[in-house]
Lab assay of single mutants.
Amino acid sequence: GATAVSEWTEYKTADGKTYYYNNRTLESTFEKPQELK
């Protein structure tokens, strides 16, 4: 079976905060997504 690849990509803001962006739902969040835990 195919492994589900996380759609979340980790980015940093200009002031160094980490956030996560989902390229399928176009959602962004500062909290670590469930799929990455």
Rank of each mutant, 00 (worst) to 15 (best):
S28P: 02
E27R: 03
T13H: 04
T18A: 07
T3K: 03
T25N: 02
K37Q: 15
W8N: 00
A4I: 13
S6I: 09
T29E: 02
G16V: 00
Q34C: 09
D15A: 07
T25D: 03
P33D: 02
V5H: 12
K17Y: 09
K12I: 12
R24H: 14
S6D: 11
A2G: 12
L26F: 15
D15F: 05
V5Y: 11
Y21R: 06
E27F: 04
G16T: 00
V5F: 12
L36F: 13
K37H: 12
R24P: 04
D15Q: 05
A4P: 12
V5R: 03
P33L: 02
K32S: 04
T13R: 04
S6N: 11
K37R: 12
E27S: 05
Y20Q: 00
E7W: 07
E31S: 08
E35G: 11
T9W: 07
Y20R: 00
T25R: 01
W8L: 01
G16Y: 01
Y19L: 09
Q34L: 13
F30L: 08
T13Y: 04
T25I: 01
K32V: 09
Q34W: 12
A4R: 02
E35A: 14
T25F: 03
N23F: 08
K32I: 09
Y19H: 04
K37V: 14
E7M: 06
T3Y: 05
T3W: 09
E27V: 10
A2Y: 11
K12E: 07
T9N: 08
E31Y: 06
T18N: 04
E31I: 14
T9S: 13
A14E: 11
L26K: 15
A2L: 14
G16E: 03
K32R: 10
E27N: 04
N23M: 08
Q34P: 11
S6T: 10
L26H: 15
F30K: 04
N22D: 02
Y11M: 15
T13N: 10
A2K: 05
V5E: 13
D15V: 03
E7K: 03
T13Q: 05
Y20W: 15
A14K: 11
N23P: 06
E31L: 10
Q34K: 10
E27Q: 11
A4V: 14
E27I: 08
K17F: 07
Y19F: 11
N23H: 13
L36R: 02
E31M: 09
S6M: 10
L26E: 15
F30I: 06
E10D: 03
P33N: 02
T3A: 14
A4G: 12
W8K: 00
A2W: 13
A14N: 09
D15M: 04
Y11K: 15
F30T: 10
E31W: 06
E27T: 07
T29F: 05
G1T: 13
S28E: 10
N23T: 10
K37W: 14
T18S: 10
R24K: 15
W8A: 00
G1R: 01
K37A: 14
G16D: 04
T13A: 07
L36E: 06
N23W: 12
D15T: 07
Y21D: 03
K32L: 09
N23V: 08
T29P: 00
A4E: 12
K12M: 11
K12L: 12
R24T: 15
Y11Q: 09
A2V: 12
N22M: 00
G1V: 13
T29Y: 05
Y11C: 05
K12H: 11
F30E: 08
W8I: 01
T3S: 14
Q34N: 13
E35D: 10
E31F: 08
K12S: 06
S28W: 15
P33Y: 02
Y20T: 00
L36I: 08
W8G: 00
W8H: 00
T29R: 06
S28G: 10
E10G: 01
V5C: 04
E27L: 07
E35I: 07
P33S: 02
E7F: 06
R24Y: 15
L36W: 09
F30Q: 06
E35Y: 06
S28L: 15
A4D: 12
T25P: 02
A14V: 11
V5P: 11
K32Q: 06
Y20I: 00
R24A: 14
Y20E: 00
N22Y: 01
Y19K: 04
L26N: 15
Y20D: 01
F30G: 04
T3N: 14
V5T: 13
T13M: 07
L36G: 06
E31A: 07
S6E: 11
N23S: 10
T3Q: 14
N22H: 01
L26M: 14
K32F: 05
Y21L: 10
F30N: 06
T13E: 03
Y11A: 08
N23C: 10
A2Q: 12
R24I: 15
A2E: 13
G1M: 13
G16N: 05
K37P: 10
P33A: 02
N23R: 06
E10Y: 04
Y11H: 15
K32G: 03
E10R: 03
E27K: 06
W8Y: 02
G1F: 14
W8M: 01
E31K: 07
